[in-house]
């Protein structure tokens, strides 16, 4: 692929990405009020989307990965983001160092 084409593809990809990021709001803001079922669905978006990144990784993970997630989940009940992240990362590195 020539240099000019590569840059054009990159800019095309940038425009396509921006369209997805602005598009959802532009479409939704056309409606004056939001139906409660749509509202309930939108409130579920963050947990639903983020779960789809975690669940398959956990399902396909080994002892070290599952151990790290379990420790992080437990830590999340008491502590904030930085602490639970550090606890999970240390568990992961430790278990992998043990060859698990």
């Amino acid at each position: 692929m020539s240099d000019g084409t590569t840059l054009l593809v990159i800019l095309g990809a940038a425009l396509a990405t921006f369209a997805t990021r602005a598009g959802g709001h532009l479409v939704l803001s056309r409606f004056r009020s939001i139906h409660p079922r749509v509202e309930a669905g939108l409130n579920a978006v963050p947990a639903a989307v983020l779960t789809t990144i975690v669940a398959p990784a956990a399902f396909n993970g080994g002892v070290a990965e599952l151990g790290a997630l379990a420790v992080a989940a437990l830590a999340s009940l008491r502590f904030g983001m930085t602490t639970l992240f550090a606890a999970g990362a240390v568990t992961l590195i430790g278990l992998r160092a043990l060859g698990l």
Partner: peptide, 25 residues
């Protein structure tokens, strides 16, 4: 792999999922 770099984002995203646990449903 030994540094766990490939799995850090998953741990991070799990933490975010947990932060929404007070939401309805």
């Amino acid at each position: 792999h030994a540094l766990g770099l490939d799995f850090l984002l998953t741990i991070y995203f799990l933490g975010l999922v947990m932060s929404f646990r007070k939401r309805a449903l």
